[in-house]
Design a protein around this nucleic acid. Structure first.
Lengths: 131, 131
DNA sequence: TGATCATATTTGTATATACAAATAAATATC
DNA sequence: GATATTTATTTGTATATACAAATATGATCA
């Protein structure tokens, strides 16, 4: 189980990296940016919950995207809001396209139904393990 | 799918680290050492296949276990054989015990049948993706 | 038999992520 | 209203793993 889940994660990671290569973003960066375009002003905590990554990881991802001028941070008090830049918004359709291609890629290998089932199962199990 | 599989892998990783804590080894080191005890003289390539990790990662894991005097490497020509040390053999029962506890832990959360099914599914899918 | 090709392993370096501590602001309590 | 507690975010550092290049040995073939 241990190695199976690790191996699967790494395999999908590799496929995903390939899918997003043309945008010059890693899958995590790409998904984060998509979220920011969809929910402008979202806060790190929100991103953390959506992406199931820790806040510190979110900070690091956001920093990199900010350096690339794809989003901006504004701080009010202890809260930070993350907004897409024009450049980030411009990139959005390509990101969605890549996401679709990535989905199509593994669906073509596993079958549409089976991939959906697997994804549902994994999500459910992560939640169960989230004690 | 992408985040689900990553999240699952990380969650299991955390559970596993907890399970092996008492042996002072990470799950990967522990599984590798178990394999070496079970198949004395196994080569890095063999370990790599069993554990689904790259050869370079195997080298790193073996180095660390060698430093801890839990195994030894002997080189003949281009091949390297990995053997358990007495200390490594001694540790084996504890490792098996930890593996059992780890399995019991996730089985108690997911149910025995469901965890088996999931593990089988993931392995099958990794193989399918292994083009 | 010598040149080339293939295989096994290791080394240098990079990526993704996390944990724990630090910081800073908001809220509660007295 | 001052102090303590909680919450949000960032920073310093560590871990697990991989890729690509280097090395070294063995095999093939002309």
């Amino acid at each position: 189980m241990y190695f199976a889940s690790n191996a699967l994660a790494r395999k999908l990671e590799k496929l995903a990296i390939e899918s997003w290569k043309c945008t010059d973003l890693s899958p995590s960066h790409a998904y984060l940016l998509m979220l920011v375009v969809e929910i402008p002003g979202i806060q790190p905590t929100g991103l953390s919950e959506h992406l199931r990554l820790t806040p510190s990881t979110i900070t690091r991802l956001v920093e990199k995207l900010e350096k690339k001028k794809l989003l901006v941070r504004t701080t009010e008090g202890k809260l930070t809001n993350v907004y897409p830049s024009p450049k980030g918004k411009e990139l959005y359709p390509s990101l969605v396209q890549c996401a679709k291609e990535f989905q199509a890629l593994y669906a073509s290998i596993l079958g549409k139904e089976e991939s959906n089932r697997l994804a549902r199962n994994m999500t459910r199990i992560v939640d169960k393990l989230d004690v």
